[in-house]
Design a protein around this nucleic acid. Structure first.
Lengths: 203, 203
DNA sequence: CTTATTAAATACCGGGTAGTATTATATGGA
DNA sequence: TCCATATAATACTACCCGGTATTTAATAAG
C-alpha cells in the first residue's frame, strides 16, 4: 500500500522512521538529559520545524522514541524470557544480559534512564513511562506468582514486595551499568540481592 | 580570633557560610540538575560575581556544598551508626532512617544524587564525590569484615561483593526515595535485598 | 504559464545558562 | 579632603535551549 494521496504539493522527504531511530539511539546512548532536540535534528540531518510538524515537539519525539524502543527492544527481550524456566534462571539470565557491556547497541536502558529523569519528560512521555513500568511490574507479578506455586519463592513474601524488589534491582542495575560501574561487581551484587527471593546468589 | 586585617577597603558583607547552607539545601532538595547557579544566588540574596570570587565558580560552590554536607550530615550519621550492633541491625537502622520521609530536612542524599549526575559536576566536585564514596566503601568493608568474624556473614561471600551490595542498595534506595517512590515498598524490598548477606529480610 | 497546495529550511523569539568586564560603594590612611 | 584599597552589585558576553513566524522550493491541477 503506497502513501495515500500523491495529489499535490511538494513531495515529502522527511524520513520519520529514520528520525525516530536517531532519537532512540541518541537518548539511549547519551541519556535524555544529555542530548537536546537541536542536537537530534543535527544528527538526523533534519530541520527543527520538520520534527515539530511530525511529532508536535520534543515531548512527542521522546514519546515516539520510547514507543519504538519498547516494541523493538523491550518486547522481544521479554518475549525471549517468558519461557518456563525457574524464576532464578530468568533473573540470572536477565542480569547477565544487562551487565554485558560488549554486546551490540548502547548499554543501559532508555526506559530506566527516563524513570530517573521525570523532570526532563513531557506529559506524553511521562504517561508512557508509567504505562511501560506498569507492564513490567505485571510481568514480574506473574513470574512471582508462578514461582510461588512451584515453591521456589516462599509464600510468606508478599508479591508486591517481590515485584518491588525485582523492579528496583533491575532498573537500578541498568542505571549503574550505564554510568560505567564495574560490570562484574554489579553482576555479583545483583545476584546476591535476589538471594532472599530465590536463594540463588549465595553460592 | 577575629578576621585578620580590618585594614582598608569596603567591609565585607558576603556571608560565605550562609551561601553554602543555601547551596546545600538547594542542591539537596532540587538535585544538582534541578537548580542553577543563578537560582542559588537569587535564593541566597547574593550576587554572582561574589560567589565567583569566593568559590571560583559553580564547581567550587558545589564542592564546598558537598564538603559541608559530608561533615554536617554524613559524618554524624556514620558516627551514630558505628556502634557494636550486628550488621543486620546497622542496615535495618539505616534503611528505616533513609525511608523516613517525615523527618526534618530534605529526603534523599546529596552525595547519592551527585553520583547519578557525573556530567553535571566539575572536576573538584567529581573528585570529592569519588573520595567520599571511597570512604563509605571503606566503612562498609570494616562492617562486613567484623560481621564475617562473628559469623553473621558467611565467609564465602567476598567482601568486595558485599561492599558493592551495600553501596548499591543504599545509594539507589536514597535515589528512589528522592524520586518519590513508595517508602513502605522501598523499605520492604531493601530489607529483602540484604537477605543473602545477613538473612534478616526473610521474615 | 499560472495558481493552489504541500513541505522544506532559514531565521528568528524569548528565556535560560555560566562566566566576566565594568562600575559603584564603603572603608582606612595620608 | 583626597586617595588607595578592597568589596559590592550592575550589566554585559557568548552560547545554549525549545518553539515558531516566515520564506523558499517542489509538485499537481487549471
Amino acid at each position: 500500500m503506497e502513501t495515500a494521496s500523491p495529489s499535490a504539493g511538494r513531495p515529502r522527504t522527511f524520513d520519520t522512521g529514520r528520525v525516530i531511530e536517531v532519537a532512540v539511539e541518541s537518548y539511549w546512548t547519551d541519556g535524555v538529559e544529555g542530548v537536546s532536540l537541536n542536537e537530534i535534528c543535527r544528527r538526523a540531518g533534519v530541520s527543527k520545524p520538520g520534527v515539530y510538524r511530525e511529532f508536535r515537539g520534543e515531548d512527542g519525539l521522546m514519546d515516539a522514541a520510547l514507543a519504538h524502543y519498547a516494541e523493538s527492544v523491550l518486547a522481544p527481550n521479554f518475549a525471549n524470557i517468558a519461557g518456563d524456566s525457574s524464576l532464578a534462571d530468568v533473573l540470572a539470565t536477565l542480569i547477565e544480559f544487562m551487565v554485558d557491556v560488549d554486546r551490540s547497541g548502547p548499554v543501559g536502558c532508555l526506559l530506566a534512564n527516563m524513570r530517573q529523569m521525570p523532570d526532563r519528560l513531557g506529559p506524553a512521555t511521562r504517561r508512557r513511562v508509567t504505562d511501560l513500568r506498569e507492564q513490567s511490574r505485571s510481568s514480574y507479578a506473574t513470574w512471582v506468582e508462578r514461582a510461588k506455586e512451584t515453591g521456589e519463592v516462599p509464600s510468606t513474601i508478599s508479591t508486591d514486595v517481590a515485584v518491588a524488589l525485582i523492579d528496583f534491582q533491575l532498573t537500578n542495575l541498568l542505571v549503574q551499568i550505564a554510568l560505567g560501574e564495574d560490570p562484574d561487581l554489579l553482576q555479583a551484587q545483583a545476584k546476591l540481592s535476589f538471594a532472599g527471593l530465590t536463594g540463588f546468589g549465595a553460592d
